[in-house]
């Protein structure tokens, strides 16, 4: 009991508090300052935040829609289907797939001498590599979607399973067409669960670091990479505290998203089993 709380205090609470306090500290004197927080308002930092939000938002929506479709297809296979169990297990694996391995997988597919790049180049003369978009923000969107879709499948499938067949039967009995059922019953019921899942995906992408750290070679298009450069930079003193401020910015964004998620979760459970 005590070792548990002690351990978490040292390795989870202390680091988080260090970050938040450090964000308001002057790197050299250790005194209170708003300088680090003000530095977050610089055009470079704002631009990075904007790109980070764009990346998280677009992959959350893309992964959300594709994942919801895939989840529906899987659920429609019926509860005893072996294919359904297998796909759900694979989704569980792929949602954890990230970091170094994922970056390598996409480089081996779409990199300069990647499988698809070579096949398209030699086969139909189409240049998919271009100017190396894989190593920038566009590449990150493609690569992140790869783990967002299976995550969506995992978090959204329970909601789809909770959609009672009786609702559909009742709607059909009252003369509804398939389209009317989805537009007036199915989709409204699933909307909170869908939005909640998308928020979870957003936080997931926003916090991801490893894949981007491997993939992106030039510049720091997203917040986690800017934090890395603030931590490892030896050019400017006091950069570490800018890192703290950026990390605090991440905590704030993720906390807002997860707060909204908790609110939505409360609404979701009302109609679904």
């Amino acid at each position: 009991m005590l070792p548990f709380f002690g351990f978490l205090a040292v390795f989870l609470i202390v680091p988080t508090v260090t970050v938040i306090i450090g964000a308001f500290q002057d790197g050299e004197t250790g005194g209170f300052t708003m300088g680090n927080i003000e530095a977050l308002g610089s055009s470079a930092a704002i631009d990075t935040l904007r790109k980070s939000l764009l990346l998280s938002g677009s992959t959350a929506l893309l992964g959300g829609v594709l994942g919801a479709v895939l989840a529906y297809l899987i659920v429609s296979l019926g509860p005893r289907s072996i294919l359904r169990r297998t796909t759900l297990s694979i989704a569980g694996v792929l949602a954890q797939f990230g970091g170094v391995t994922l970056a390598f997988a996409w480089i081996s597919l779409l990199g300069f001498s990647g499988l698809l790049t070579v096949v398209l180049r030699d086969g139909i003369g189409f240049d998919i590599y271009g100017t190396g978009w894989l190593y920038g923000l566009k590449g990150l969107i493609v690569v992140y979607t790869y783990f967002q879709v299976p995550l969506m499948v995992i978090v959204f499938t329970p909601a789809l399973e909770g959609l009672r067949p009786q609702l559909k039967e009742a709607a059909v009995n009252l003369g509804a067409t398939n389209f009317q059922y989805w537009r007036m019953v199915g989709i409204p019921l699933l909307t909170p669960a869908f939005l909640g899942s998308v928020l979870l995906l957003f936080a997931n992408a926003f916090a991801a670091y490893a894949t981007a750290a491997i993939l992106v070679s030039q510049g720091n298009p997203i917040v986690p990479l800017l934090i890395r450069s603030a931590l490892t930079s030896e050019v400017l003193l006091g950069q570490q505290n800018l890192g703290f401020a950026l990390a605090t910015e991440m905590i704030v964004v993720v906390a807002i998203v997860m707060g909204l998620y908790a609110l939505l979760l409360r609404r979701t459970s009302r109609w679904l089993r």
Binding site: L12, V14, P15, T16, V19, G22, A203, Y209, I251, M258
Partner: peptide
């Protein structure tokens, strides 16, 4: 909820 990157940033002293 706390991104691993944030924990890393704060854990250096520990």
């Amino acid at each position: 909820t706390v991104p691993p990157l944030v924990i890393v940033v704060g854990i250096t002293n520990v």
